[in-house]
Design a protein around this nucleic acid. Structure first.
Lengths: 352, 352
DNA sequence: GGGCTATAGGAAACCGGTGTCATTTACAAG
DNA sequence: CTTGTAAATGACACCGGTTTCCTATAGCCC
């Protein structure tokens, strides 16, 4: 009696495996077997223990489990992304894959540019002993991070616009092909002077998109003057500057492909500012299909990549641990993007 | 010699506290004291151990720590937010507060509407034994979740548009006041027929914003006809419908306040679709200052709330554990939003 | 120099699970 | 009836830290 724990304390205290074992009249090892769905268990025992677990609302302590198993159940997301919606969609896909597993998702934005970035990532992985990480674009293009993961023995999957790594470590979209398709679409509408707002130098995605653009033009026998290519930084502001330099050309382009939606929105913004009618005088194509693309007027023709599915695939690659084998029968590594046709493209009203 | 571990294995294996103790020639308890900065330690010993820790790159296993300490170091973020940028900004604020602490951030989007939502949240908290959670608007308005947290003994802080809870559990913005200010601004420009795209019924933030709007009108002696209030759901699509019903009135309003930027963007979109000039024929004010507000043309006048600072404050409230005392000397609980004046507001060209 | 206290440091138990291996039980075959 | 075999279960060490309690040593005083 004197040993009795006060009722209110017991109620709030989380039951442990020992409590369950005692209440069910079995050893804790047996409870452990029930939790881990071991096949070598008498059905009656299993049911009895399960009943106690249900009644008490027992949940195994993941820290203890992690410690005993020598691994944990945390998947990290590393990103440095300007595109908030993409990150959220990716997280959604990852969580769909993680649902009903014991894995949890830990998010870590990093600051490219920061001198301590690599150290930040290292301590992120080490501190929590992450099971694996998903690296989002554009930081995924940084090979050093992949090397760091290997060094730390941490599983990783990189998301990106091209195959930067082997299938087990990569989920990629086919930027080049779909940009070529988008460009052919502009050409089919009758455009011949098409400007490009390119992405930042050194970014693989920027290169892929540019190459897709150029290949479609070349294929149609259209020469691309150097001054119809303007560099951007994937930001709205850089898009404004780039667009101004394109529209200052004479004659100006009748269509512009912007390497992402932020910059496409900047093209539209700048056109409006100058009183240029879209799409009548200027057609615009973007890339990403962020929410902004469908919220401006006219809504932007753009490229949508199946980001949720890619996130799910990335997470499944991690937790299935395919990285240890060369079996490719697992999750797909390349996803096809699609051109979404909206109101920002029309045949040119002016021909040069 | 025969007991020697292969060099390559040793290199990749993470050192444990025992390794450090052995290398430093002390007991693991002493190492533990160094880690936890215990004052009763000889300085020489401390330095010796620290040196070994540095050399080996030892990082304490957080799982083991969590187990031994009976608590862990995970802060959960619960959100069901349509506004991706806001979530990211909030995460940034929280991470700033968590930087250089041993806490890690775990994110969980939930689906209001889903029948399993409460169970999802319960298992989210239970499974990882979260140290605390930050609940984002609008789901933060759900009192049941707060009750669940208390029941589970999990610290929590709610973010929102009004004080829904005591200071220790709440970080709020002053929506009502700032919306009144925005409305007074429209009135000062000469607007008298001002429409409202309201937020969803049952949302505290929607109510606060509506009340701020109505109070400013009342204060100026302006009657607000019932048909100049249209209900929205904080989504772009609902904003379109709401705007259409407002613009169908005769005479139509010369200005519209939309309860968030998504819907403000919808007002602009619909106006463009109908060939209504903004801001000449219709002024628009939004709320949130999401990226979209500054990327449409004309850029939207809107309300910006200091979301990063609020996130930081929320995290600090959690980890400082102020919830156990009534000491209010800690983090601020109310943050002031500001009106950002851009190009979507002008004096009316038409007077009725 | 002996006995005292203060204090650094160690031994062992513990947190809540899991792995290994031994033991018990049930049942079929010899 | 004994024995062999497989299934079911338990005892105990262990994961990597922390805490409690105790010991050994040093410094101090008389």
């Amino acid at each position: 009696m004197s040993k009795a724990v006060p009722a209110e304390k017991r109620a709030s205290a989380k039951p442990t495996i020992n409590d369950i074992a005692r209440l069910a009249g079995v050893s804790k090892k047996t409870v452990s077997r029930v939790i881990n769905q071991s096949p070598l268990l008498n059905e009656d025992t299993r049911e009895k223990v399960k009943a106690v677990i249900r009644d008490t609302g027992y949940v195994p302590n993941p820290q203890a489990r992690a410690l005993a198993l020598g691994r944990n159940f945390l998947i990290g997301i590393i990103h440095d992304n300007p595109n908030a919606q993409m990150i959220l969609n990716m997280q959604q896909g990852i969580l769909e894959a993680l649902r009903d597993t014991e894995f949890e998702m830990v998010v870590r934005p990093v600051d490219r540019g920061s001198a301590t970035m690599m150290d930040d990532i290292r301590s992120f992985i080490m501190r929590q002993r992450l099971y694996g990480v998903v690296i989002m674009p554009p930081i995924s293009e940084n090979d050093e991070i992949a090397r760091l993961c290997r060094e730390l023995g941490c599983r990783y999957v990189r998301m990106g616009s091209a195959r930067l790594d082997d299938d087990a470590h990569m989920v990629a979209s086919n930027d080049r092909d779909v940009v070529a398709e988008a460009t052919r679409y502009l050409i089919a509408q009758g455009h011949r002077r098409i400007g490009l707002v390119a992405g930042p130098h050194g970014f693989r995605s920027a290169r892929e998109r540019r190459e897709g653009f150029e290949s479609a033009l070349a294929e149609a026998g259209i020469r691309l003057p150097r001054n119809l290519i303007a560099d951007g930084q994937y930001t709205f502001e850089s898009g404004i500057t780039a667009t101004e330099s394109l529209l200052d050309q004479s004659p100006p382009p009748t269509a512009i492909f912007a390497s992402n939606d932020e910059m496409a929105a900047a093209v539209l913004y700048t056109a409006r500012e100058r009183g240029i009618a879209v799409p009548e005088e200027l057609s615009i194509v973007g890339f990403d299909d962020t929410p902004i693309a469908s919220r401006v007027w006219p809504p932007l023709t753009t490229v949508r990549w199946p980001i949720v599915a890619m996130g799910r695939s990335a997470a499944l690659k991690l937790i299935r641990g395919l990285d240890s084998g060369d079996d490719e029968g697992g999750e797909p590594s390349t996803f096809l993007s699609t051109l979404v046709r909206r109101g920002s493209v029309a045949p040119p009203t002016r021909t040069d």
